[in-house]
Design a binder for these strands. Structure first.
Length: 568
RNA sequence: CGGAGUGUAGCGCAGUCUGGUAGCGCACCUGGUUUGGGACCAGGGGGUCGAAGGUUCGAGUCCUUUCACUCCGACCA
């Protein structure tokens, strides 16, 4: 491709809403163009090329693993979503609309329903299973706050795959195969990543893993162990039960006047005890379908923090929101002095598992200005793991130290079970002619997000540095001064020779000066370049590696074979 | 949805307080010079100043309403 013919509107200036390197360079490098600035982007020729290459890697590995590509209709009848029960549960991110006949539709944010529908219509026998179908198509999620360019757009390209099995064991086999396949994909794309245990969120099901591309700019906090390969999203991370060296307060069961102590710090210093022996009672409002809601008290040790996703799962709610003090008082609770005991009966209580059987605890007295000491937690509370793992906690697997790191969620695989096949009646006949729901797995990769993830990991202050398998072109050739006939002639010659050798070359034949072309090259970030310039009079050209901007001088007559050796 | 802010040329911004010819940089077009780090000179095109209503002889500027977007918090590939 000749640069002079390619639509690459590079800019010197940074768009004012871009803060992330990937966002800045994808826009400045002319890869993408913002549409109305609301999480919608056009892919320009360069961006489309990268997208296609990344998509190609994904497709190749999936096909090798025995998956089959399909393409599902983007507009989905709402009735399917009603069948699965997600029409309500999915919330406002689901874009709903009506056609001219007033029939309701949604724009697919994910396609479990559609794929199950496809399979239930065409698969009837155990002989047709297992089956792994995928598509690489647009998704639309009406995000509350789209941002960071391709990292969190409203419309995005996603690979979503679904597998169907006769039993749990076969689904797990496929799940493991997909984990290995995903590792191959991310490795080929040149990404440094970590596979972590994850929460299943709105998709449902059990046992899910996320593929986190490590980057400081990542939106997810992941917990990793420095002693073993344990890794988990903060939303799902577990730890060894915490121990406390400080002595337990030896106080009997009494009510103590604590007028100014309502926070954990104040309370700990008031009683002069470790926060480990305090009970923190956090009130949240749990939201359910059809506008129902309930106040829930979450009790945990004063030394711990509530993990909201875990808490939300514990009460099976759609969402947890904060509760105002007024609402708490109206429900008969005393903000700042709440206890998990003797609560009004419309208030639900969830206790962290580590408090089960705990003694010598200090907690609120359900009375303004008072706490009680010498409490023991026993009996039939609803016990759940609701705490956030903290840095420095001990790994449950090996006892090593857990640390936080930031990641970009690039892939997520789920063991779904019969969460969708059952309500949607996706069954097969087994050897005995008996109908059973298929056991499913589901597997996603954020393909357009991968472009952002690659740049987050591979850039410098000057621009993008694409990896071998993601680069829009294999090589860039610059003719420094196109008025210099010798330079231009050699450029044309090398360009032709490499093109016919199957190397995808971007030939910069523009009239601009050296500096301007160099800036564009650095911004666009093709892995290697050949610069035909001044040194041609000494019979030399330069071979540049974008990573580190390393320059090597090569005799001009050897450049074609040199490149074929380096790039192939 | 809560908090903060911004809407003026394709992009980045000034002008708004104090009403009076709509400006600057980048980009774009023409001609010329220049060619190893985002060149220079000369000329040129491009705007219902987010929208609606009001005040006024006159509104980008003042008043009212409204919409959109961005940033900080809770969702997700």
């Amino acid at each position: 491709m000749r640069f002079s013919r390619l639509l690459v509107p590079t800019t010197k200036e940074t768009p004012n809403d871009a803060t992330l390197a990937s966002h800045i360079f994808l826009i400045r490098g002319g890869f993408i163009q913002s549409v109305g600035g609301s999480g919608l982007y056009n892919f320009l020729p360069l961006g489309k090329k990268v997208l296609d290459r990344v998509r190609g890697v994904v497709k190749e590995e999936l096909d090798n693993a025995g998956c089959q590509e399909v393409s599902l209709s983007f507009v989905t009848p709402a009735s399917l979503w009603e069948e699965s029960g997600r029409y309500e549960k999915y919330g406002k991110e689901l874009l709903r609309f009506k056609d001219r006949k007033d029939n309701e539709f949604v724009l697919g944010p994910t396609h479990e329903e559609m794929m199950v529908n496809l399979v239930r219509q065409s698969v009837k026998s155990y002989k047709q299973l297992p089956l792994n179908l995928y598509q690489i198509n647009l998704k639309f999620r009406d995000e509350i706050r789209p941002r960071f360019g391709l990292m969190r757009g409203r419309e995005f390209l996603m690979k979503d795959g679904y597998s169907f099995h006769t039993d749990e064991a076969d689904m797990k086999r496929e799940f493991n195969l997909m984990e290995e396949t995903y590792k191959k994909i991310f490795t080929r794309l040149g990404l440094e990543f970590r596979v972590v245990e994850a929460d299943s969120g709105a998709i449902g099901g059990s046992g899910s893993k996320e593929f986190m591309v490590l980057a400081d700019s990542g939106e997810d906090t992941i917990v990793v162990c420095d002693g073993c390969d344990y890794g988990a999203n903060i939303e799902a991370a577990v730890r060894q039960e915490k121990q406390c060296d400080a002595p337990a307060p030896q106080l009997g069961s009494e009510k103590v006047h604590t007028p100014d102590a309502s926070t954990m710090e104040e309370l700990a210093s008031f009683f002069n005890v470790d926060p480990f022996y305090l009970v923190k009672t956090v009130a949240m409002r749990a939201l359910y379908d059809e506008g129902k809601s309930q106040i829930v008290l979450f009790a945990l040790r004063g030394s711990d923090e509530l993990q909201e996703v875990k808490a939300c799962n514990a009460v099976d709610a759609n969402e947890l929101v904060e509760v105002s003090e007024e609402e708490l008082e109206a429900a008969g609770l005393v903000p700042g002095f709440m206890a998990p005991f003797d609560t009004p009966k419309e208030v639900r209580v969830v206790v962290d598992t580590t408090l089960k059987g705990a003694t010598h605890l200090i907690c609120g007295a359900n009375e303004k200005g008072y706490h009680t000491t010498g409490n023991t937690i026993e009996g039939d509370f609803a016990y759940h793991d609701i705490v956030a793992v903290q840095e420095g906690d001990a790994c449950a697997k090996c006892g090593g130290t857990l640390r936080y790191t930031k990641g970009i969620e690039a892939g997520h695989i789920f063991q779904l079970g019969t969460r969708y096949s059952e309500p949607l009646g996706c069954t097969f006949l087994d050897e005995n002619g008996k109908a059973k729901p298929m056991v499913m797995g589901t597997y996603g990769i954020g393909v357009s997000r991968l472009l952002a993830a690659i740049i987050e990991q591979h850039h410098d202050e000057k621009g993008c540095i694409w990896t071998k398998e993601s680069a829009p072109f294999d090589l860039y050739i610059m003719v420094s001064n196109i008025k210099d006939e010798a330079q231009l002639a050699l450029g044309e010659e090398v360009y032709e020779a490499l093109q016919s050798a199957g190397i995808d070359v971007l030939f910069d034949d523009r009239k601009d000066r050296f500096g301007a072309k160099m800036k564009d090259y650095e911004l666009i970030g093709i892995p290697h370049a050949v610069i035909i310039g001044k040194k041609l009079s000494d019979g030399l050209v330069e071979f540049v590696t974008r990573e580190g901007m390393v320059k090597e001088e090569v005799p001009s007559e050897e450049i074609v074979s040199f490149i074929r050796e380096r790039l192939c």
